[in-house]
Each structure stands twice: as C-alpha cells, then as structure tokens.
Design a protein around this nucleic acid. Structure first.
Lengths: 136, 136
DNA sequence: CCGTATCCGATTTGATACTG
DNA sequence: CAGTATCAAATCGGATACGG
C-alpha cells in the first residue's frame, strides 16, 4: 500500500540530479503535512499543547483570536491525525483535556526549529515587505 | 518599530510560566510565516529553488500541477517576503531566473527538518486517519 | 518566453445563536 | 464547560484568454 514513498529517504536531497518528485505531490507526505499544519491555528495549538495539556476553554483563552468553531475543528483534525489526544474527564461540569500524543511530541521538535527561525528572521520578512511597498 | 518581538528569544520557551504570546498572533512571526508557507505551492517552490535557480517555465514544468496564475502569485509573494530573488535576463526571448536569497536559504534548513519529519512519520498520520474512519 | 486579467467554483474562516 | 448549527464573507485555486 505504502509503496509510493516508502523508499524515499528525503525529499530534500538536493544532490539528486532530478528535482523533487512533485508529480506525486498529493501523495507526498511533505506537502500533505504542510497543508494540514498550514492553516491558521494548528501549529499554535500544537505548540501550546507542547508546553502542557490544556482544556478546551484554556486553549480558547490562550489563543484568544480563535472562534469556537475553528478551535474545535483544528483540535479534531489534529486528533484524527494522531497528533493530539482528547480525553473526557468524568467531572461534574464536564471537562475535556487535550494533550500531545507521542507522535505529536516528535513533531514538536522540527516545528520548534521552524518557529525559532520565524522569531529570528520575522523582522527581516516584514522589512522586505515594507520596502517592496515603497519601491512600487 | 520592531519593538514588538525584538526581545523575544523563542516562542517555544516551554519553561515560561505563561503560554506563548498568542494575543499578538497577527504580529507573531511564527503564525505569520506559517500562513505564508501554508498554501499549496510556496514550500515546493522554495525547495525547488533550494536545489538550484530556476526559470519561470522550468518551475512550471517541474511542478506540473500548478497554473500560471498560482505560480506567478506564489513566486511573487515569496519575492515580496525577501525569500526569493527575481532576475530578468536581457536575452532575446526574455528569460527570468528565480533564486533563493540568503534569507531564503537559511529558511531552507528548518524547512528540511520538518520535511524530514513528514517523510519519516507520514505513514503514521495516514494510518491514524484510516483507523479513525473505521471506528466511526 | 513571461507574464497579467477576468471569471468561476471550492474551500476556509468567522459571528452568532443555541444545546447537553 | 464544551461543544454544535447555520449563515455569510473572504480567500484560494484553476481555466481561459490576452498582452509585452
């Protein structure tokens, strides 16, 4: 079943004479992953959950710009992908706790590398955008 | 101007007593970066350009599923962000060459870390999704 | 060859209101 | 507290046609 990319060591093997197998884009796990995490909130939730488990409204308050609808959708998608675990606690007012699965924790590492880059170079991007606007 | 996040060492400082500054999400370079790269093609173009400079139709053929409109939009956005450089060569039929800026090259590193994760764990995500569908 | 312009449909996101 | 439902808007993405 998973023959398609089983033997692929890395899509970023720049030394290859041929470019990346972009024809198989839809089947490519890289593009796939990015499209899942590429939405507005997934990565933020992952990062938040990486620090400690959170309850629903805890996440809601922490992100603060997200709607209930999107928070639910995001967290459910992450759960379906096996990155987040959802646990309903049998308390009197029902509580739901979200946490990272082991798989989700491993994702946190490369994610942090990218986030770190963004923090370090974010200003340069903003600057580039501003200068572009001026030169127009 | 750039006081907002100048002093921030890393958004992923899990040891902090407080969560990430998600209130400033729009100003947060992490969410911002992901929203730019989160589209269908940006990352692919970046990866392609990371291997070597490409001309317009070279990119078009390499990606093969992309429309002219989207290729232009993608490459222009990347250029505006200071990640890609666009150079018009004074050839008889006009040629345009796209390449990574130094900034774009530094981004390639954390990007490859994430891509590597995707290749390694992509199957686990697909599996998680399948199992979810069955248990429904 | 290298784009831009326009139109169109599909997907995503958000505001609001309501429920167990 | 933890969601779900519905509606409307914005954005995304592609096909096609045209211009420098």
């Amino acid at each position: 079943m998973s023959d398609t990319h089983t033997g692929v060591p890395s899509v970023l093997a720049f030394d290859l004479p041929r470019p990346v197998p972009v024809d198989d884009l839809d089947a490519c796990p890289v593009g796939d992953l990015f499209r899942r995490l590429g939405d507005k909130w997934s990565m933020l939730v992952l990062i938040l959950l990486g620090s400690r488990p959170h309850r629903y409204n805890e996440l809601h308050r922490a992100i603060a710009g997200i709607s209930q609808r999107m928070l639910t959708r995001t967290v459910r998608a992450l759960e379906a992908d096996g990155l987040v675990r959802r646990e309903v606690l049998p308390t009197v007012p029902p509580s739901v706790e979200y946490s990272l699965t082991p798989l989700g924790q491993t994702l946190l590492e490369p994610l942090s590398a990218l986030a770190d880059w963004a923090v370090r170079h974010g200003a340069e991007i903003s600057e580039a955008r501003s200068q572009r606007a001026k030169s127009a």
